[in-house]
Design a protein around this nucleic acid. Structure first.
Lengths: 307, 307
DNA sequence: CGAGTTTCATAACGCAGCGTTATAAAGACC
DNA sequence: GGTCTTTATAACGCTGCGTTATGAAACTCG
């Protein structure tokens, strides 16, 4: 208050700076002078001029004022979602294959938002959402298996493909028959992943009972490395393959397999309100997936890239 | 408050730092978190640890805290009289001859107290005391002429001597007769000074009607210069001559002249309460004059220095 | 793992600081 | 001296924050 008066040279303008009324400042000043026991401004001088003591205290007040301003700034940046830490959980393949790119784009726009990625499956992520050590989880889930107290926003319908390396013998065929597939070895996703379930379902659906697993349990990049270095096949989410289309390292077989009953979405806990930054991340990811969806349909209609 | 909690690592100790109760802090924190709309501390963790946001705000709070502490320091220094500005008025001869030395000693003890000396006589100093542009005035006054609303503390009884240079023909005589004096020229103090009145009274008392004035209107140092460079005489306050005894440039004649009815004292205005620093100056001057008085009696009794 | 200790949260209550508007008074300006 | 600007005062109400008493967690330790 003292700073505002000294800075603006008067009560009226000082009050305006502080967003208060002039009488309020006047009385506050009087009370302060009374408490201090000394005049803070030269008495009876109209261009109000501070005493030495007033000046010295106003200098300290300046620091307080600036700190308050800085605090307001910190706060507004936080509340605008420009600042903060967001813990995003997700299944490894989606996180590595799709989400991390989106997060990179987000981080480019908002460099002061720190984002922690946590890898895990539903049974890991759910408790962490519950105890608040995770803000969002992005994972494929069955609509029916959403536990009480959680909300799930679907962002992409589940769709898997059989993936192979770009130059794979089956890659060029416009239609792949089931019998063609049998002879190739398989790369299995980690056994506790939903994708592994999908793989088993696909193989069961196709009718393959015995299949060679040449590699298992790795990360997405490991899987892709094996994939591109061999003629092995695997099941991958369509979106993951789609995102890798630029590298032209991986293709999807032209064979329709049953869609999984899990759909990719953002899971969060109702009890915990999201921080503004987390909300921004969530909105960002949703909009990114929207554009991804339109991009998928657009590309699918063209002949340039064929899943 | 936030800073205190973060600094001390908990509410209990933080409250102690701020001199408040723990529940007070607890609720203040809760209100703040509610207003901010975000947790400032990790929830349900016993060694209370701030959120990033809490940390950032606490850093600003630290500045506020320090500024508050600095303000308290400024204030206590001011209220202890260690800081401030004191305007001391006085008659030129006393100020130059006696007071300035005391002020120098004071300034040595309290270098942060700024002291402004203002030269003037009663008619200048009184209005300035009244309008607050002066804190104290040190001047010789008649007890009866203290105006309403002023208080006057006598610090030294008025006593004048006839002064001459140290080697003056009259200086060695143990008793000076009136007839001896007549032949020497006189140095007159400024015509508007009380000392000038004293001089006139002395001369009238002595019976000298015509007297040569060889110099007039100067400051004390000018007067002393003339005095030491000639055989001229003048009337000076005894205390001024006493203070100059170390230099052995000026002597006082061994002749008793009537004491002036003015007495040296500290004049101040009742309406204006003194600042702590001004009070310290006042007390300092009073105590200095007390020691001066005892010093005068001690020296007078010895034979080393004879007025 | 349960008892004990520490620490934080909540409740109930009261005071005072500070916000407001309306209005008077005092300087400044011409 | 009249007018305008600026500060001081008054009356009123509400919110913030202080207190003590007490309950509920969470950490510690044998």
């Amino acid at each position: 208050m003292l700073f505002a008066i000294v800075e603006k040279g008067g009560l009226t303008e000082g009050a305006a700076l502080l967003g208060k009324s002039q009488p309020s400042l006047s009385r506050s000043l009087a009370i302060l002078e009374d408490r201090v026991g000394a005049a803070l401004f030269e008495p009876d001088r109209r261009p109000l001029r501070p005493t030495e003591l007033g000046q010295a205290l106003a200098a300290e007040g300046r620091k307080v004022f600036l700190a308050g301003k800085a605090s307001a700034d910190i706060l507004s940046r936080y509340q605008g979602g420009m600042t903060g830490a967001v813990r995003v959980g997700g299944t490894p393949f989606f996180l590595d294959g799709v989400i991390s790119g989106m997060i990179a784009a987000f981080h480019f726009k908002h460099p002061d938002v720190r984002i922690d990625q946590i890898y895990g499956y539903a049974n890991d992520l759910l408790p962490r959402l519950e105890d608040g050590s995770l803000d969002l989880a992005i994972l494929p889930m069955r609509a029916s298996s959403i536990p009480q107290g959680f909300s799930f926003e679907q962002i992409l319908p589940g769709r898997n493909v059989i993936a192979c390396r770009a130059g794979h013998p089956l890659a060029r065929r416009s239609a792949v028959k089931l019998t063609d597939i049998g002879q190739y070895p398989w790369i299995a996703p980690p056994a506790d992943s939903p994708l592994y379930q999908d793989l088993r379902n696909v193989l069961k659906e196709i009718g393959i009972k015995d299949f060679k697993v040449s590699f298992t349990g790795g990360s997405l990049s490991a899987t892709v490395s094996i994939l591109t270095g061999s003629d092995a096949l695997t099941v991958l989410p369509f979106s993951v393959v789609f995102m890798m289309r630029q590298q032209r390292a991986v293709s999807a077989l032209s064979i329709r397999i049953g869609d999984p009953d899990r759909h990719l979405g953002v899971l969060r806990h109702d009890g915990l309100k999201l921080s503004p930054a987390a909300n921004r991340v969530r909105n960002h990811i949703r909009s990114e997936f929207e554009t991804l969806a339109t991009s998928i349909t657009r590309v699918s209609q063209s002949t340039v890239w064929r899943p």
